[in-house]
Design a protein around this nucleic acid. Structure first.
Lengths: 191, 191
DNA sequence: GATTAAATCGAGGGTGCCCTCGATTTACGG
DNA sequence: CCGTAAATCGAGGGCACCCTCGATTTAATC
């Protein structure tokens, strides 16, 4: 299902400028940036913006699947780690480091995403990887047996808020918080 | 500094109705409820609302110090616990149970409160109690030595988000999350 | 270069929230 | 009862955001 006609040259250029502007602004200020700001930074009128991306979800769908794919790579690396616990914890740190770098990513994982279909799909795939990491770490007897995927979701909520509140004033605070939490996940503390 | 003149009867009645409406709506929907909604629920015009409470902070100042005082009682109880660790953990559970019951309380502790002076003051007093609980639990050798008041603030951020996201769909999820975190705070896991 | 469909522009309509203020109503003391 | 200060009312101004649409400009094609 290739686009029916190729885009005109100026249109293609503007589309890229819009995408770049949106990517940057989402990253800096989160998903609530007004459409007008995106248009202004792209040096394009608001009408043109809507011609390309009729809704904010259209932006999300164009931007975030790529970002989430980057997390897949992280998942691969973690799964390749010979020590399942080390791999699991490394994944958490890498995941939340991305949150800290990209306010928009943080937002999109924190709120329950409406139905940005492409985004949802990427999340499901990511969740699969995480489930595997969890299982491996449990089987190796290092992660407490009652830790579930649901707990992972909850942790994501928690971390997203911690990062939002602290990343500017105390950029390492979230690592500290995560370390406390992770300490409680060792099997010795389990049931 | 008693009010210069006593309120007229209708004014006093309306003030109470406004306070009741605001308390209820803040509790249900958080601090972002529009002023218009409060006025409507109080069966009072928007103009009257502003006559009594010229700003949202005025509402906060009238409502939350009382709520936060309730937390003081909790602090007292915790400090009276013969087991410092048990007291500390009990305080956390009680504190966040309040968050779960009162969306407005959750909001006001999650965001850095602008400068609702009366609210700020109550928070400082509460923080004092918490610091004491932390010290006691450290001295008894049960709480890891590197846990600080700052970590307590961070935990509050985390819990506020977890509660917001889960309290309706999974009312016990926050307890579970807290339990994992608290497990990591035992001195055995410390430095 | 003329033709034409594609793309751009930005004023402006709609919504929801904040808050004000002059006109009106109401409580209360004499 | 009456006079008056106190209290109430709600239309409406201001602002920020969403999005649309008819007029205009521009790129591509012959």
């Amino acid at each position: 299902m290739a686009s029916s006609r190729p885009l005109r040259a100026d249109a293609a250029r503007n589309r890229e400028k819009l995408l770049a502007a949106a990517t940057q602004l989402f990253g800096e200020r989160g998903l609530d940036v007004p459409m007008e700001h995106i248009a202004r930074r792209a040096e394009v009128s608001i009408g043109t913006l809507y011609a390309h991306f009729p809704t904010k979800e259209a932006f999300f769908g164009a931007i975030f699947p790529e970002r989430l794919a980057a997390l897949d790579a992280l998942g691969e690396k973690a799964r390749a780690d010979p020590d399942p616990w080390h791999g699991f914890v490394g994944y958490l740190e890498g995941l939340f480091a991305q949150h800290a770098k990209d306010r928009g990513l943080n937002d999109i994982l924190a709120r329950q995403v409406p139905q940005a279909s492409a985004v949802i799909e990427s999340c499901h795939r990511g969740a699969g990887h995480v489930a595997e990491l969890i299982d491996r770490a449990k089987l190796s007897g290092q992660l407490r047996a009652d830790f579930t995927m649901t707990d992972m979701t909850t942790l994501t909520w928690a971390m997203s808020q911690v990062i939002r509140e602290s990343v500017d004033s105390a950029p390492d605070e979230w690592r500290r918080f995560l370390a406390f939490y992770v300490a409680g996940l060792r099997a010795e503390n389990g049931p």
